[in-house]
Simulated assay, not measured.
Amino acid sequence: MRKKRSDQHTHAVDFIRFSDTPGHIHAYSTRTSFNHGHRHQVRGRTSGPYPVPGRGHVHYYEGVTSFDDGHVHYFRGWTSPPIPLPGGGHYHTFAGETTLNDRHIHSYRGRTSEGYR
């Protein structure tokens, strides 16, 4: 017996990720610049990898700084492409500026961990 069109089972696909290193993420942790008499901690975990043709992949990151001097800042950005390590594996660099809060911003820069699943 042939099913009617309305009886067919379907799925919508909202997101597909293809990557040269599927599923890995990186941890990151660094301090911001010293502005307005204080600094903040920037830390978290990246997204999974997003392919960049001819350059490997990058990772997205975002978060909230540590609470210092009575406030926080938000941050977000993309890492560099992978930088190989001598024994295998790789890391990424990242840098940016936080959002404006309490009439100032902070800059930050660092490198991710080697990566883990």
Rank of each mutant, 00 (worst) to 15 (best):
P22H: 07
T10F: 14
G48V: 02
S80M: 11
Y116E: 10
D14V: 12
S47N: 05
G96P: 06
G63T: 00
S33E: 05
T30G: 04
P82I: 07
K3W: 08
H40Q: 06
Y91L: 11
G115I: 04
V72K: 08
R55Q: 13
Y28G: 01
G89L: 10
V52P: 03
R2N: 09
V58A: 00
S113E: 13
P84H: 07
K4S: 09
Q8G: 02
R43H: 14
P82S: 05
H11W: 11
G115S: 03
T93I: 10
E114W: 00
K3C: 09
V42G: 06
R17P: 00
Y50K: 10
Y61A: 07
R76A: 13
T21W: 15
G56F: 13
D20M: 12
T112Q: 01
Y74T: 13
R31K: 07
M1R: 08
P81I: 15
Y74W: 13
P82N: 09
F18C: 11
R5K: 15
A95Y: 09
S107Y: 00
G96H: 02
F67Q: 07
G48K: 09
T10A: 15
H71C: 04
R111A: 12
V42R: 07
Y61I: 05
P53N: 03
L100G: 01
H57N: 09
H92C: 05
Q41V: 08
T46L: 14
T79H: 10
Q41S: 09
V64R: 11
R76I: 01
P81W: 04
G23Q: 04
R17L: 06
H71I: 03
H73Y: 10
P86M: 11
R45M: 05
H73C: 01
P82Q: 14
G87K: 10
I83T: 12
H26R: 08
G44A: 03
H92N: 11
T30M: 09
S47E: 08
G70W: 09
G23T: 11
E114L: 02
Q8P: 08
S6K: 15
G37T: 01
P81D: 04
F18W: 06
G110T: 02
F18V: 04
H26C: 00
H11P: 02
R55D: 12
H106F: 14
I83A: 07
G54I: 06
G96E: 11
I25C: 06
T99I: 14
R31A: 12
R55G: 03
V13F: 14
V42I: 15
S66Q: 14
K4R: 05
H9P: 01
D7L: 15
P84K: 12
S66I: 01
H40E: 11
T46W: 01
Y116W: 12
S113T: 12
G89M: 06
T32C: 00
T65Q: 07
T112F: 01
R45T: 15
V64H: 07
P82Y: 14
G77A: 13
P81C: 13
H11C: 14
W78G: 03
H36I: 00
S33T: 14
R111Q: 14
R55E: 15
S6H: 15
V64S: 02
P86D: 10
P81Y: 06
S19H: 01
Y28M: 08
Y91M: 13
R5N: 15
R17I: 04
